[in-house]
Design a protein around this nucleic acid. Structure first.
Length: 121
DNA sequence: ACAGTGACAACAT
DNA sequence: TATGTTGCCACTG
């Protein structure tokens, strides 16, 4: 069911190492679509409707350009994404902010992206 | 074909 | 710093 763009997003996100994060916009840029940040978020939200085999995408490592978690949880309930990140060593403040100076993933270069997309992961 | 929908981002107040 | 506004994009009924 997943469209090609979604697959490309998942392929990139799977390369984010544990303990590191990146932004929706950066993922979009790596895919050559600098203005498709919103679509990246849409692609990740679609993960909950996808097959278990696709559940190996570390979506929690993608946050917004301000270094903050974009998923809001109901009041007084722990933020799931924050917990997942803390579990792998990422410091998340109470206001859901993360220090990009310390945890930002360097990302991939076009050569690597090209290789990944060519082999469809 | 087309309007509606977000886990965005950059800018303007 | 905190909201609001506007542009964008892929996907969906």
């Amino acid at each position: 069911m997943a469209a090609n763009f979604y697959e490309q997003v998942y392929a990139v996100v799977r390369r984010i190492p544990p303990g590191k994060v990146t932004s929706y916009g950066r993922v979009a840029q790596m895919l050559g679509r600098p203005r498709a940040a919103r679509a990246v978020g849409y692609a990740l939200s679609a993960l909950k409707d996808v097959e278990p085999s696709q559940r190996d995408v570390p979506w929690q490592r993608v946050i917004n350009s301000q270094g903050r978690i974009s998923i809001v949880s109901r009041d007084n309930t722990p933020n799931y994404q924050a917990d997942l990140l803390r579990a792998e060593g990422v410091a998340v403040s109470d206001n859901l902010k993360i220090n990009l100076e310390q945890f930002l993933w360097e990302g991939l270069h076009w050569v690597e992206i090209d290789d990944i997309l060519r082999s469809n992961q």
